[in-house]
Structure formats: structure tokens, C-alpha cells
């Protein structure tokens, strides 16, 4: 990409119509991979939206009482049940990892290999913690409370089903993200992005923009959690 200077292009809606009317690229200054990740996230948004819409529709139409989530997800702290304690900590962890990812992306822009690598690694550890806590939450629900996908002791049986399905799907996203974060942490430390080493499978040149793309994915996972937190745990 040569002499394209984004600052010289008009911004705002005028810029938009000009970008769309122009040749070559519609999203000016957006790398192919980044554009692809954005569109993928758009598609994934529809996946999660469909899950949540289905959940809300079923929840609205069951006649059995829906369990009260803040009681179901309460944790005993010194004999007192604290509502949603674990969930609050999980939210805290995920937002923390989102912040570290944002910093990793920032240092990626600056081609600061050390800092970028450390923050990617931190993010990965944050994600791993989140997955671990989710595993704890699941096992508590399954073994302690007796919640099953097909039944639960608190009321409408879809509660367990939707809980396991939606958090499971989200957890899968987190886990995939964690795997990639570890891989990319290694790549950053090895200096792949500085030397432009080629990917083993894709034979594509490595570039720091990959960190930004990974960052988009990771923030998206956080974004989805915001919605799950609101609709599933608080609603």
C-alpha cells in the first residue's frame, strides 16, 4: 500500500460516499485481514443475536416461573450469599483482559515488540482465568445445584438449557481466542512480525496488523459478554 494518505481524504458522510464511489478499496486504509475480521464479527453478531433472541422469546413464553438469576448465581461469602459474585469477578477479569489487549494493540501499532508481547500474554492469561472460572461456575451448577440442560430444580427447564448453550458458545469463543493469543504471544516474542516470517499454513507474511485483528476478535468476545451479562444474569 503506497502513497495513500488517509488524512487528505474527506471525512464524515462526504468521505463515505466518496469511498464507496471510489475504485480499488471501499474501506480506505483497512487491511484485508482486518476487513475480513470485521465482516466475520458482523456475521458472528448475528449468531449471538439469534441465540439471545431465541432465549428471550422462550423465556417470555414459558408459563413456569423463570429462576431468579441473582439467587441461582449467588456465592456464599462468610455465610452470607452474595448475589452474582462470581459473575462480577468474571466480568472484572474479562474487562481487564480487554484493556490489556487494547494496550497490546497500541504497542503493536508502535511495533514495540517487548511490550506488545507481554500484553498479549497477559491477555491470554486473563482469558484463561475467565475460562477457568466459567468451568467452576458450570461444575457448581451441575454438581451442587443439580442444574441440567433438560431440567433444573428452580423452575422453567429452559433456564439450564439456554445457560449452558449460550455461555458454552461464548466460552468456546473465549477458548479459541486464548489459544490464538498464546500462539501470537509466541510469534511476537520470536519477532515474526518484525521479520515478516511466513505463516506455516497460510504462507502469508506476518505483520503487526495481525495483533490488531486478534484484538478485534478479543474485544468482540468481551462485547458479547456485556450482552450476556445484561440479558442472562441481570434481566
Amino acid at each position: 500500500m503506497s502513497d495513500l494518505n488517509l488524512d487528505k481524504l474527506p471525512g464524515g458522510f462526504k468521505g463515505m460516499s466518496e469511498d464507496i464511489g471510489s475504485d480499488q478499496t471501499t474501506f480506505k486504509g483497512v487491511n484485508w485481514g482486518k476487513a475480513m475480521m470485521w465482516i466475520f464479527l458482523l456475521s458472528d453478531t448475528f449468531v449471538f443475536s439469534c441465540f439471545l433472541v431465541a432465549y428471550m422469546k422462550v423465556r417470555a413464553s414459558v408459563v413456569e416461573p423463570w429462576p431468579y438469576p441473582s439467587e441461582v448465581f449467588a456465592l456464599e461469602m462468610m455465610g452470607v450469599p452474595v448475589p452474582l459474585l462470581l459473575i462480577a469477578i468474571m466480568t472484572f477479569v474479562l474487562i481487564t483482559s480487554s484493556g490489556t489487549m487494547a494496550l497490546a494493540v497500541k504497542y503493536g501499532y508502535e511495533k514495540n515488540r517487548k511490550m506488545c508481547g507481554w500484553f498479549v500474554l497477559l491477555t491470554a492469561i486473563g482469558g484463561l482465568t475467565f475460562v477457568g472460572m466459567q468451568a467452576f461456575e458450570w461444575s457448581k451448577l451441575i454438581f451442587h445445584d443439580g442444574v441440567r440442560p433438560w431440567a433444573n430444580p428452580f423452575g422453567a427447564e429452559q433456564f439450564g438449557a439456554f445457560f449452558f448453550m449460550i455461555t458454552g458458545f461464548h466460552g468456546t469463543h473465549v477458548s479459541i481466542g486464548v489459544i490464538f493469543l498464546f500462539i501470537f504471544a509466541r510469534k511476537v516474542f520470536r519477532g515474526d512480525f518484525d521479520t515478516g516470517r511466513r505463516g506455516y499454513f497460510t504462507t502469508m507474511k506476518s505483520d503487526y496488523v495481525a495483533i490488531e485483528i486478534l484484538g478485534l476478535y478479543w474485544h468482540f468476545v468481551d462485547l458479547v459478554w456485556v450482552f450476556i451479562f445484561a440479558f442472562f444474569y441481570l434481566w
Binding site: I20, G21, S22, D23, Q24, T25, T26, F27, W32, A35
Partner: peptide, 11 residues
């Protein structure tokens, strides 16, 4: 969207 050749506008 992103890999058209020179002169190839959407329209």
C-alpha cells in the same frame, strides 16, 4: 470490496 483493480469502482 477491497481488492478491485484500478478504475474498477463499485458502479
Amino acid at each position: 470490496l477491497q481488492a478491485r483493480t484500478r478504475g474498477m469502482s463499485l458502479m
